[in-house]
Simulated assay, not measured.
Amino acid sequence: MNMKDIVEHCLSYPDSYEDHPFGDGWTAIRHKKNQKIFALIFRLDDRLCINLKCDPNHAGTLRDTFADVQPGYHMNKEHWNMVYLDGELSKPDIYEMVRESYHLTQPKKLKKSE
């Protein structure tokens, strides 16, 4: 998977936008309403990577199952995974992780008062 493919996929989610808060080489995909990052794309040791938020109960399972899933680079290791995009993982596997990250970081819905 290349940079263009993953950015296009992330931007296909509703109300998302591309940002570069850390300068060249770092692409953040955020929610428009709360500005939370749900995907952070970068190169590490000349490999294309993405940080994605993950349920802590699921994060360890993914790391144990796939060598290309590691604790989040420069992120909370309990809640974020770093995924190498040029390795063994299929597009559907990566896209499912993006979907989970998008949902975990989306704006909270307000409860209607009775």
Score class of each variant (00 low, 15 high):
Pro14Phe: 05
His74Arg: 06
Cys49Arg: 01
Leu62Asp: 07
Phe66Gly: 12
Trp26Lys: 14
Met82Cys: 09
Tyr73Gly: 15
Lys109Ser: 08
Lys108Tyr: 08
Val98Ile: 14
Gly23Ser: 06
Asp93Glu: 08
Gly87Tyr: 00
Ser113Gln: 07
Trp80Met: 04
Gly87His: 00
Lys112Ala: 03
His9Val: 01
Tyr102Pro: 03
Gln70Val: 11
Gly23Thr: 12
Val69Gly: 14
Lys32Gln: 13
Pro14Asp: 14
Leu44Glu: 10
Asp5Cys: 03
Leu40Met: 13
Thr61Gly: 07
Glu88Val: 06
Asn51Asp: 14
Ser101Cys: 02
Lys4Gly: 04
Glu78Trp: 13
Ala28Trp: 13
Asp45Asn: 13
Met97Arg: 06
Gln70Ser: 10
Glu100Ala: 02
Ile50Phe: 02
Lys109Glu: 05
Asp86Asn: 05
Lys33Asp: 14
Lys109Tyr: 00
Asp5Pro: 00
Glu96Ala: 14
Asp93Val: 09
Lys36Glu: 14
His31Asn: 12
Thr105Gly: 02
His103Asn: 11
Val98Leu: 11
Thr65Glu: 13
Thr65Ile: 03
Ala67Glu: 15
Leu89Asn: 03
Ala67Phe: 05
His79Thr: 04
Ile6Asn: 02
His103Cys: 06
Met97His: 07
Leu89Glu: 03
Asp55His: 11
His20Ile: 15
Gly23Trp: 12
Lys111Val: 12
Lys108Trp: 07
Leu62Thr: 13
Ile37Ala: 12
Asp19Cys: 13
Cys10Thr: 01
Asn34Glu: 06
Leu44Pro: 00
Asp19Met: 11
Val83His: 04
Tyr13Asp: 01
His74Lys: 03
Lys91Gly: 00
Ala39Thr: 10
Val7Gly: 01
Pro56Gln: 15
Ile29Phe: 00
Ala39Arg: 08
Trp26Ile: 15
Ile6Thr: 05
Glu18Pro: 02
Leu62Lys: 13
Val69Ile: 07
Val83Trp: 00
Arg43Pro: 04
Ala39Asn: 08
Tyr95Pro: 02
Phe22Ser: 10
Lys112Gly: 07
Leu104Ser: 05
Glu100Cys: 05
Met3Ala: 09
Leu40Tyr: 07
Asn2Thr: 12
Glu8Val: 01
Asp24Thr: 08
Phe66Leu: 05
Pro92Ala: 09
Arg63Gly: 10
Trp80Asn: 01
Arg47Thr: 05
Arg63Glu: 06
Tyr13Trp: 12
Leu110Ile: 02
Phe22His: 10
Ile94Leu: 09
Glu114Arg: 09
Cys10His: 01
Leu48Cys: 04
His58Met: 09
Trp26Thr: 15
Asp46Trp: 06
Cys49Phe: 03
Asp15Ser: 13
Asp93Gly: 02
Ala67Trp: 07
His79Leu: 02
Pro92Asp: 07
Pro92Cys: 05
His20Lys: 15
Tyr95Gln: 01
Ser113Glu: 11
Leu44Tyr: 02
Trp26Glu: 15
Asn34Tyr: 10
Leu52Arg: 09
Asp64Leu: 11
Phe38Leu: 04
Lys53Ile: 11
Leu11Trp: 00
Phe66Glu: 14
Asp19Trp: 14
Asn51Pro: 07
His9Asp: 00
Lys109Thr: 00
Tyr13His: 14
Phe42Lys: 01
Val69Asn: 14
His31Tyr: 11
Val83Asn: 09
Glu114Asp: 11
Tyr102Leu: 06
Ala28Arg: 12
Lys53Ala: 08
Ser113Trp: 10
Asp15Met: 12
Lys91Met: 05
Glu96Gln: 10
